[in-house]
């Protein structure tokens, strides 16, 4: 009787233990005998081997600096006080921070900046772009997404300086030259000095939206066509399909983008630093991360207050962690990874 190659292979792997010292049918190599303990050891090594690089990065670039920051915030370390670096001063830095005259303004600025940019651009515009470009012919959609990605290909300093040129005051700014009058009002009202927040948020939003756009696009494209057909047949309008089907089905990417962008907006300051440097005037567009940076590194009345800067930073890290946990709770993360309870009919 003729036997089939496939059957032979199955036969051996079923009747002989996998690790026994017989030639492997598939490869012809002899497998060495291995004990159960050795196998478990090897599995552990493999697991840590894969986890290792990421764990090392988190340890070196997050855990260790976090601890150092915390220690630093209880000292007086500054460039003026360098000969006595580790003197413990308790919660002095913290009380100084919370009683700072501009603390409420910086806090308000930070939340205004983060959530306005997040909601209008990083989520809102990103979702709008993803929805629009997935509802047009493929090539056109691809082209428009590419256009929106262009700022990402531009060095950020160049990108910001271009916005500065646009927003400069009359008669220099491109905007004010092109539209000396806008809706009856003097165009000069819209320059960088007149409405700085508009420019800060537009500058961040136009580049920030493309990240969400790409993630949302791929999520929307992966929704099975049958579901959309079913919704159309069920009587859903375009708007109801978006509201009832598409958005709930991209909950995961929405969670990811919200969390990621909130945290990155909270900690990003380079755009504001280069665009307005927190001005014009006192703390008009100054955000938390920029304050932390200025206190620690920018010479503040001739003194770099490293410890005080660290205090601003550690509070920011704490706020960021609380927000991250809040997002996970808000999006019912646990429900998303629930075990299915499948039973037979």
């Amino acid at each position: 009787m003729r036997t089939f190659g496939l059957l032979e292979k199955g036969d051996i792997s079923l009747t002989k233990p996998l690790d026994s010292d017989v030639p492997d049918v598939a490869t012809g190599f002899r497998r060495p005998q291995r004990s159960a303990l050795g196998r478990r050891f090897r599995a552990t090594v493999t697991a840590y081997g894969f986890l290792g690089p990421a764990m090392a990065l988190v340890l070196v670039f997050f855990i260790v600096p976090g601890i150092l920051l915390l220690i630093l915030s209880f000292t007086e370390l500054s460039s003026a006080n360098f000969n006595d670096p580790w003197s413990y001063i308790g919660f002095d830095n913290f009380s100084r921070l919370f009683t700072d005259r501009f603390f409420p303004k910086i806090l308000r600025n930070t939340f205004f900046y983060v959530f306005t940019t997040l909601i209008l651009f990083n989520l809102g515009l990103a979702l709008l772009l993803a929805l629009v470009t997935t509802n047009m012919p493929r090539r056109a959609g691809f082209f428009f997404r590419l256009v929106w990605l262009l700022p990402r290909l531009t060095p950020s300093v160049v990108y910001i300086l271009m916005w500065r040129r646009i927003g400069q005051a009359d008669p220099f700014g491109i905007y004010n030259q092109l539209f000396p009058e806008f809706l009856g009002a003097s165009g000069g009202n819209l320059f960088l000095g007149g409405s700085p927040w508009t420019f800060v948020i537009l500058t961040n939003g136009f580049i920030g939206a493309s990240f969400g756009m790409i993630i949302f696009t791929s999520a929307l494209e992966s929704i099975p066509k049958d579901l959309l057909t079913a919704a159309k047949v069920d009587g859903a309008s375009l708007w109801r399909i978006i509201r009832d089907i598409k958005i709930p089905l991209i909950k995961w990417p929405l969670l990811f983008i919200s969390t990621y962008q909130t945290l990155s907006l909270l900690t990003s300051f380079e755009y504001i630093l280069l665009l307005t440097d927190g001005g014009p005037g006192l703390f008009t567009t100054e955000v938390w991360a920029l304050t932390a940076y200025k206190r620690a590194f920018a010479s503040y009345a001739g003194n770099s207050q490293w410890a005080f800067g660290a205090t601003w930073a550690i509070v920011l890290v704490t706020v960021a962690l609380i927000l991250a946990v809040g997002y996970v709770k808000m999006f019912k993360f646990n429900e998303l990874i629930e075990e299915p309870r499948i039973e037979n009919l």
Binding site: P224, D226, L227, T229, A230, P248, K251
Partner: peptide
């Protein structure tokens, strides 16, 4: 019309 699909096309959420 009512429609039934091979993939069931039920709304998973």
């Amino acid at each position: 019309i009512g429609m039934v699909f091979q993939s069931y096309a039920l709304y998973p959420h």
